[in-house]
Amino acid sequence: MGELYYFSSSLFLGWSIGTNDSANVFGTAVGSRMVKYRTAIILCAIFVVLGAYLEGAEGIKTIGNLTGQTLKTAFISSLVAAITVTYMTYLGLPVSTSQAAVGAILGIGIYNHSINLSGLTKVFICWVGTPIGAVISSILLYIVIAFFINKLHLTIFELDFLLRGGLVVAGCYGAYALGANNVANVIGVFGNIIKLKPEILALIGGLSIALGVLTYSKNVMFTVGKKLVPLDAFSAFIAILGQAITVHFYAKVGVPVSTSQAIIGAVLGIGLLKGMRTINLKTLLRIILGWIATPLISGIISYIIVLIFK
């Protein structure tokens, strides 16, 4: 029962991932009213849980091995990550849950003098690699899929059907990748503390993300959807697929990354290919700032809290 209490901050973090990040996978389809909100959240919740359960264990190991943790410090780092995410979202600043979670864990690791440097390097490389990987995957996907679609000489109704289906499938895959990758942010910190199988931990984390998707994702989904809608349906489909492949790749590597930064990278890739300016310099600077500011803020807060309550 006591363990459950310590778990609550993680579940809160999972819930906030669900409320925010589901927009990156289903926002376009819902914002342009191609898929009903209700259908989108049900599909999203199912695939998030599946992704977390089937492929979330690897990331849980990475995060669990990043620093030495106790039940109390794990509770604090999850709570700080959740507070950082909520506060930065409230301020309208770009925020990645992965970066907030890792920052909070590191704050405690610095206090305890127990940081796994090779694990940390791996995490930083993956963060930088996320938008870059999404740029490359979206460019490659665009070229290959466009080639085959053009070969088929589809009618307008056939292309419409294909793209609608594609957006739903890519959304489901994106939700699966989100669950597989981001569940480590939710529950990874407890990986080496709680005596449960990683799959069961992943399932609990996945369910908390799904709960966020089902209860409070509407506003963000419509807002993000409208931001991405100026893309044509094919580009939106490629952007979501490119993002999902990138995030899934990092789930396999075992490092939780930002789905928001992945979708920005994917949109940038399409813009580069089509000679369009889809992302401005300000957005890119915000990503780079996010890499530094988010872990720094959550790291400092968790360090201070551990210092106060030691």
Partner: peptide, 12 residues
Amino acid sequence: GKALLPEFREDV
């Protein structure tokens, strides 16, 4: 009634 994607709907 959303029988087509918005970009195609307008054209048709």
